[in-house]
């Protein structure tokens, strides 16, 4: 392991942890809104951490730029789609979970 690996590996592993947490939410949460909440958080942070890990390992600025660009695109698309799905679900009267 090179010194940069000591930074990269924890980032990568914790990123995957966020994905695992997100899928737990996808399986366990009671309605579409809470599942959406779990997913958008975990996936964006998870991908962010993994991108950070890969940036540490990257060997050129071009790769760093591309990785960050991908992350930004996923953030934008994910947030927009989450908004559209939520708005659609509310318009269609999908009920929110109440205790």
């Amino acid at each position: 392991m090179t010194p940069s690996d000591y930074i990269a590996v924890p980032l990568l592993v914790s990123g995957v942890m966020f994905f695992l947490a997100g899928s737990a939410g996808l399986l366990r949460f009671p309605d579409v809104y809470t599942r959406l909440h779990a997913l958008t958080k975990s996936d964006n942070v998870g991908l962010g951490l993994i991108v950070a890990g890969l940036v540490v390992e990257a060997d050129s600025w071009f790769v760093v730029g591309k990785l960050l660009f991908i992350w930004l695109l996923v953030l934008l698309a994910g947030a927009s789609v989450a908004n559209l799905i939520t708005k659609g679900a509310m318009q269609r009267g999908t009920r929110m979970w109440t205790r």
Binding site: S23, L26, L27, V32, R35, D43, I70, I85, T94
Partner: peptide, 29 residues
């Protein structure tokens, strides 16, 4: 599993959305 069981169409689409993000990450790795 979420895409198959739903229950609403929104749930299924959400699952496909996650699929996309995860595929991005797997491909980068």
């Amino acid at each position: 599993w979420r895409a198959v069981v739903g229950p609403t169409a929104a749930d299924r689409m959400l699952a496909v959305q996650v699929f996309g993000t995860t595929a991005v990450t797997i491909t980068l790795l």
